[in-house]
Structures are given as structure tokens and as C-alpha cells.
Amino acid sequence: MCIAYLLMARKNSFLWLLLLSLICTLEYIVYMGAKPAGDFSASAIHIDMLQQVFGSSRASISLVRSYKRSFNGFVAKLTEEEMQQMKGMDGVVSIFPNEKKQLHTRGVLDSGIWPESDSFDDEGFGPPPSKWIGTCQGFSNFTCNNKIIGAKYYRSSGQFRQEDFQSPRDSEGHGTHTASTAAGGLVSMASLMGFGLGTARGGVPSARIAVYKICWSDGCFGADILAAFDDAIADGIQLPLELFHGNEKTDTNISFCCNDGPVLASITNFSPWSLSVAASTIDRDFFTKVQLGDSNVFEGVSINTFELNDMYPLIYGGDARILQQVLVEQI
């Protein structure tokens, strides 16, 4: 349909041709491998490549972002035909759509952070190190401290859902969870509704945290992920460049695997030069007893945070969601 519209547009004005060509485009990530040695103007090079594909009229407005700090590449709005043409250009390693990724554990490149959590208290921390040049995108609902020393958010589409905070603040909880797991401070008397009572702490409690919010209620997009990596390295975060284009020294890179499984083909984060690792289990079990009407007692693995002081009918677990929806509608 887009091709038909474009053929029609050629009979009309240049502006119609420009408008319709933009309507028929998708965002593609053009990966060009390692960053060239020495100084280079990434944007100028990338615009020049786009001009070779469709002239100077659309080049600047089609370029969404240039990556220049840790690797060479860019994001551009292209039609299917233009993408195929660009694949054959010198220097292009690969081209892939700016697809939405499902949320995984990414350390602090995640869904943001809840700065008021006790895990991120900055008591005992001095000023940020002098080598740190990152910034805190401060808003009325978000502030950094000497523990959370930087925070940014990324949304290349510029479109936000009602449930999302347009700031580094976490509306999902996942980013807060992973940040506290990696570098959360000591929090005493922590528990889940009384279960597992003890002291919670991250892997390195003395570490500072820089937050790069790339994940939203509808997922995480590739263009935003790469933009955050690019900025993180410029801010002073040490990230292995082999994450992008392999390691010539044959060292092994270890990365997270996925949140799904165990089923075939459930891995979503893999490459020939990396080792993908899945999550492990905890060293404890939580048991709950259920007494039936005939006085028989059965014990199973479950977490029950409230006391049952009466007898209740048994239902099929698959019907519980339906029953809950009915109750919500009645309210």
C-alpha cells in the first residue's frame, strides 16, 4: 500500500512525496561495528550515508540518533526498500528493526528506580568521584543523592502511557529491584509480609548507582538501550565494548539469559561471543498447611500472608481469575 501511495505522490508536489515516504517508514538500527580511531563526526558520516540512499531532502529528519561514544551506528527511519539498499553499503555490518524487548535483569539499565527506598540511603557516602561526569535529570518527583549519583531516561518515540512516569522514577518496580540487588545498602528487619525476616543488602552495598531508564510499561526498545549504553560510557561507567561486537582477545562475556522457561527456544539474549546465564533458586522453602473438611491436613509450598479462621469451599485455580474479575465488576 505504501508503494502505491508513493507512486501516486510522485504526480503531485514534492511535499506530498516527503510526507508519504515518512508515513511508510520504520525505525531501523544500522550497526557499523567498532568506533573508528581518532576524532570523527558521527552525525555527518551517517547523514552522508542517508543522502546516498534518498538524497538530501530527507536525510537530516530521517536520522533519529547517532551512536559515537562506544561503537559506530545510528537509528534512522527507512522504508523496506531503503533498508535493503543500505544493507549493501560499505561499513554496514547489520541492520535490524528497532523492536521492543521484554524486560530482563539489566542492572541499572532498566525501568528506573524509586529513590526513597531505604536501599538507596546515602548516609556515610561522600560526594561523587571526580571522574563522574553524568547528570541527574531532576524533576519535581525525583532527586538524586550521594548513593544515586546519576539518572536519565530514554524514549525515542516520545510517546508515554498514562501509567508511566516521564522521569527516571520507576513505575514498574523491576528497576528498583535489580538496582537494590546489585548495589543496595543494608536494610535491617526486611521481610515479605513477615517471611524471610532479616537484613537485606545488595551485592556491593558500598557502590554508587547511576540509573538509565530504558524500560517502560510496554517494554524496552533497542534504540533506547543502545543510547543508554552510549551515554553510560561517556558518563564514566566502565562497560565492556565486547557486549556490542565481540572480543578479539577471545575472553568470555557473561550476560543474563531470560525470565522465561524451561521451554525450548526461550533464550532472548545471546550472541556467539557471550555466555548466557539463567537465574538460580533460593536456599529455602516456604510451606503452608491446608486442612480439609474431613480433618486431613496437607502441606505444600506456598506463601500465605493471612490467617484463615473458618472453612472455605475449594475451587479450581483456573477459575480464581474469573471470580476476581466478577467481584471487581460488582464493586
Score class of each variant (00 low, 15 high):
H104D: 07
P129R: 08
R208F: 11
V92A: 04
S180G: 15
S157N: 02
M189Q: 09
S157M: 00
F139K: 15
E172P: 00
P168D: 01
M83K: 10
A190K: 07
A151N: 12
F125D: 04
D170M: 09
K87V: 00
A151M: 06
T178A: 11
V93H: 00
F96V: 06
A200Q: 15
G88T: 14
D122R: 02
D90Y: 06
E172W: 05
S167A: 05
R208S: 13
D110A: 14
W114S: 01
T181Y: 03
F125R: 01
A182D: 13
G203I: 15
G158A: 10
K100R: 12
G194W: 12
E82G: 06
S119H: 10
Q85K: 15
A210Q: 02
S206H: 07
A179Y: 08
S156L: 03
E123S: 13
D90L: 10
M83N: 10
I113W: 03
D110S: 14
L192A: 13
E163I: 14
R161H: 15
V204L: 06
G203D: 06
F139I: 09
G88N: 11
R169A: 05
P97S: 05
D122I: 03
S119R: 08
E81W: 11
G91T: 07
W132L: 11
G185T: 10
K131G: 14
D164I: 09
K213G: 05
W114P: 05
R106P: 06
F160A: 05
T143I: 09
G126C: 03
Y212R: 00
S111C: 06
